[in-house]
Nucleic acid binder design. Structure first.
Lengths: 222, 222
DNA sequence: ACAAATATAATAGTAATACTATTAATATAA
DNA sequence: TTATATTAATAGTATTACTATTATATTTGT
C-alpha cells in the first residue's frame, strides 16, 4: 500500500469548499484531527482551530459549514480509507472465509501505523472514530443527512462485508446486524478498554478485541 | 411487578439536590425525559425545561450541576431499573441457561410499556438510552467521572450477566465483552433500524434484535 | 402561632460558542 | 494589467451554560 499514488475522493456533499484544493484546506483537516483528539469534540472550536493554523475562524467556515460537518467529513474519509483497504486486501482472494477473515481484521484492528495518506494521520483519525464518531450520527438531523448521502460510504462498507457472510452461509438471517455489531462493537470495546475496562476482557499485549470478534462472527454464522 | 412498592435509589453523587425529595424535582426529571426525546440532547436546555415546568433555569441548577449531570442521572436510573428487573426475573431460577436467556431478553428488548415507576416514563427513557446515552460517557471527563462512581450501576449489570455466562461456560474467555457488546449493540441496532436501516436486518413485526443477540450469545459461548 | 430556616422564583449578568456579514489585503489567472 | 478569486481581519449576533443576588413563599421546630 505504501507507495501507491491513490487519493481518497470525498463526495462534494460533505464540504463547502474542497479541503483537498488548497494548502489551507490541508491544514484545516490535518490540524482538526490533532485538536479533536486533544480537546475532545465538545471543546474543539473553529476559533481555536483557526488560531492554531495561523488563520482564522471565518476562513475555516468557507470549507465546512459547521463543526458537525467537519466531523462527518472526517468520518467519511475514514470509511473511504477502510473501504480502500478492504477492497485492496481481498482482491483476487477466492475463499469467502479468507475474505471475511481479512475484513474482520481490518474492521476491528487498532490502527497503529500512519500510512501517510498525505496530510491525514490515520492513527489519530482512528482514535477520533473510536471516541467521537458516534456523535456524527446521533443527531436530530440524521434522517435529512442520511437522505443527502452523508453516510453512504459507511453503509457500503457494511454491505460489502455482509456479502462475504452471505457467501459463506446464504441462509444466515442477520448478516448486516452481525457486521455492524462487530464494527461498532470493536470501537466501543477499544474505548471501554481505556476508560471502563471492567466492561471488557482486554489484556496487555494481546489483541483480544480482534480475537473476540473473529471468534464471535465465525461461530455465529457457522 | 405492577403493584410492588419499590423505589429506585440513586447514589447522591449523581445529583446536587435529590429530585426524589420534592414535587419540583419530580417535574424536572419527568419533563426532561419528554423534552430530551422531543428536542434531542443538544437542543434541550435548562432554560427551556424551567419554562415548560413553570419554574426557571436557576431552580433546575439546584438539582443538577449541568445538563450532562442530568443525563448521567437518567442513565443511572435506567440501569438501576434494568438491574432490578434482572434480579427480580432471575430469582429462584436454577438453570444458568434460563437465567441468561431472561437477561438477554431484558437487555435487548424494546421497552414498550410504561411500568409507571411514579413520575418516570420508562418507554421514553429507553428511547433516550438508545439515542442519547452514549453521549453520557463519550466525554473528556470520563475517567474522573468513572472514579467518582458515575457508572457503577451499569458496570454491575454487565458483571451480573457475565457471571451467568461464566456459569454456563467457565472457560469462555470474553464474557464481559460479549455482554457489553450485546447491550450496546442492541441499542445501536434499534437506532439504526429507525434511521439507517440498511445497517440492520429488521423486519416489521418480528423482533429480530432480540433473536439476533440471543442466537449470537448462545452460539458464541457454546 | 411565630421565628427561623429552607426552597423557590425572578432578575440580571458573564464568558464562551457557533455562527454571519463586511471589508481589506493578497495571490492567481486571463 | 486588470479582473477574479482567496484569504485575513474585524465586528457583530443570538444563544448557551452557567453564577450570583435578592425577594418571596413554604416548611419546620418550638
Amino acid at each position: 500500500m505504501k507507495n501507491l499514488q491513490v487519493n481518497i475522493v470525498i463526495s462534494p456533499e460533505l464540504y463547502s469548499k474542497n479541503p483537498e484544493s488548497s494548502e489551507l484546506g490541508h491544514k484545516i483537516v490535518s490540524k482538526s484531527i490533532e485538536m479533536i483528539n486533544e480537546l475532545g469534540f465538545e471543546d474543539f472550536t473553529f476559533k481555536k482551530l483557526g488560531t492554531s493554523i495561523g488563520s482564522n475562524e471565518s476562513s475555516v467556515y468557507r470549507y465546512f459549514d459547521s463543526k458537525h460537518a467537519l466531523l462527518v467529513y472526517l468520518t467519511d474519509w475514514y470509511w473511504s480509507w477502510i473501504e480502500y483497504k478492504l477492497v485492496f486486501s481481498t482482491l483476487n482472494i477466492v475463499s469467502s472465509t479468507e475474505k471475511l477473515e481479512k475484513a474482520i481484521a481490518i474492521l476491528t484492528q487498532e490502527v497503529i501505523e500512519d500510512n501517510s495518506f498525505s496530510y491525514i494521520n490515520e492513527v489519530l483519525l482512528n482514535k477520533i472514530i473510536v471516541s467521537e464518531s458516534s456523535k456524527a450520527y446521533h443527531t436530530k438531523a440524521i434522517d435529512k443527512e442520511n437522505e443527502k448521502g452523508y453516510y453512504t460510504t459507511y453503509k457500503r462498507v457494511v454491505q460489502r462485508v455482509s456479502e462475504f457472510v452471505q457467501e459463506i452461509n446464504p441462509t444466515y438471517e442477520f448478516p448486516h446486524m452481525l457486521i455492524s455489531t462487530a464494527i461498532e462493537g470493536a470501537h466501543q470495546q477499544r474505548y471501554f478498554s481505556e476508560h471502563l475496562p471492567s466492561l471488557t476482557d482486554v489484556e496487555k499485549g494481546k489483541d483480544n478485541v480482534v480475537r473476540f470478534y473473529m471468534d464471535l462472527v465465525f461461530k455465529t454464522i457457522a
